[in-house]
Each structure stands twice: as C-alpha cells, then as structure tokens.
Write a protein that binds this DNA or RNA. Structure first.
Length: 272
DNA sequence: AACCCTGTTATCGA
DNA sequence: TTCGATAACAGGGT
C-alpha cells in the first residue's frame, strides 16, 4: 500500500524503539525480503545496539544504530511496520519476517507479498542503497530545476510513467501520480515534451502540494483524506470528479503505462 | 474463479 | 539509447 506518506507513517511506528536496544526475536532468513543481505551479519551488528534515529527518503526507510549499523527497509506493495506488546510474541504472523524485541516491546516488519526489501550496512560499509543529496518530493528542497531537467531527459516518455520513476520523483506512487496530474489539470497520458511552461509550473506546484498534504494527513496518523482530493473517489465505481468546475464529471479509469490511472476528462487536458 | 492491486526489476523488441 | 509492453515476484482481497 505504501508511497511517500504511508511510508512516513510506518517509519514512525518504530519511534518508541529509539534510545533502546533489542535482540532479534524472529527472522526467517529464507524470506525473499532478505535476498540482498546476509541475515547473520545483520543480526550480529544490530543486537544490543541502541537505535539512534530513523530517516525516510521517498519510499525508503533507514534505521541508524549505535556503532554505525544502518538497517534499510523498503515496504514494497504490502510491507508494514508496527509495534506490539511482548505478549503478542506467541501470536506472530507467518509474514512477520523481522521482529526485534526490546525489554518491553516488539517491533515488527511484516510483508505478505515480499516485494519489500531489507538492506544493511555495518560501520565502514558503503551505503549504496541510500540516496544522498537528492531531496525527495516531500522535501522543500526538491527543486523546479531538478524536476524540469528530469522531464527534459524523459521527454519522449508518458508523464504518468515519469512521475512513477523514483529517480526523478522519489516517493511518488500510483495514487499520488494521479492526484498530481489531476490537481495540475493535465492528462497523465501526455508526453513530457508536449508540456507547456505553464503546465510544467503547475505540475511542480502540484507535486509539492500533494506531497505536503499527504504527509500532513496520511503521514501524521493515517487519516482518510478529505473529499476534496481525488484520492477519495478514484476507486469507487461511478466515482465523480469532486471539482466544482466540471459539475461532477464521471472519473475515467484506464491503463496508462501499465498502471491503472484515474482522471477527469473535463478538468484535465492534453495541451497547454 | 477470475481478476485486481498505493512496487520494482529484467527482458524483449520497436 | 530510449521507451513501452510484458512477465515475474507471492499473496490477499473482491
């Protein structure tokens, strides 16, 4: 389920862990999420070390432990972080692939489909999996120039596809991409090089606005977004555009660039 | 029972 | 090179 704001919410679920150390209570080394790490190495360098802080970049989470160990978590389609009471130790799910236990809590990473990923770097090992120095879309330092040069580089590609590219729009997923296009009043099927300057400006403003709104509402406590967002209507059969200007045009669902896109034919246009 | 999925990567061919 | 379509991953919801 997770993109930018959902990932932020999941990251915070382990906040009570900060300042404490844990032992690994459950880890299935054959689970696919460990395909890029050596589980023994990970365990040896995490157990007994205090968690110092957590960070997020786009859809990636990072936990920094005392002694220089860094644990990376990517939630994939179905990943979830949670805190649980010690009493739940006997009731763990078969998809709870990584469970850390402090003196009074369990901290669980669950992922049923296992499209998620665990990464790890001990002290001195290179952080190849963490993007440094390129702000994600939820960061106010995410700049116009960065977005514009990425759009230029991918000029021949379909906008929806480019919005989903984590290199250019770190954190954007399927619903955010649709929400961004809808707020910018641009059809998701346009080629990037067809966008006018005004549309590109509108796109940038929408990227930042959707990211900030999502972090504020969903990232804060997983609230349901208000009906003013496309979000609330996009999966409903017979969903109507909530913008007053088109008087409730039926929303269209269509596969674009391999993913289901949802848009309003009246509000969103091709050319600027 | 068939079909869907808020993600990512590899591969093929245009 | 760049892009899009497709499959694959593996499970659960409708």
């Amino acid at each position: 389920m997770p993109e930018l704001a959902e990932v932020e919410y999941h990251r915070k679920q382990w906040d009570p862990f900060i300042g404490r150390s844990a032992r690994v209570a459950q880890l299935n080394p054959r689970a696919r999420i460990f395909r890029e790490v050596d589980p023994d190495h990970l365990v040896a360098n995490i157990e007994g070390r205090r968690l110092l802080k957590s960070l997020r970049h786009g859809k990636r989470i990072r936990f920094d432990f005392a002694g220089g160990s860094r644990l990376g978590i990517q939630l994939g389609m179905t990943g979830a972080m949670r805190m649980a009471d010690l009493s739940e130790r006997e009731a763990l799910d078969r998809h709870d692939h990584l469970v850390l236990e402090t003196e009074d809590r369990l901290f669980v990473f669950r992922d049923s489909r296992m499209f998620g990923l665990v990464r790890f770097s001990a002290k001195g090992e290179e952080l190849t999996w963490w993007p440094e120095g390129s702000p994600d879309v939820g960061d106010e330092r995410y700049s116009r120039d960065f977005m514009l040069s990425f759009l230029e580089r991918r000029g021949g590609a379909i906008l929806k596809n480019v919005l989903l590219d984590q290199e250019g729009f770190p954190g954007v997923g399927n619903w955010m991409a649709d929400e961004i296009c809808w707020r910018a009043e641009i059809l998701p099927s346009v080629r990037c090089r067809e966008l006018s300057d005004a549309q590109k400006e509108s796109l940038y403003v929408s990227v930042r606005a959707v990211s900030d709104d999502a972090l504020r509402v969903i990232g804060h406590d997983y609230s349901t977004p208000p009906p003013e967002w496309l979000f609330t209507h996009r999966w409903k059969d017979g969903g109507l555009c909530p913008l007053p200007r088109c008087h409730g045009e039926p929303l269209v669902r269509q596969k674009i660039a391999g993913r289901t896109a949802c848009f309003c034919r009246a509000c969103q246009t091709e050319a600027g």
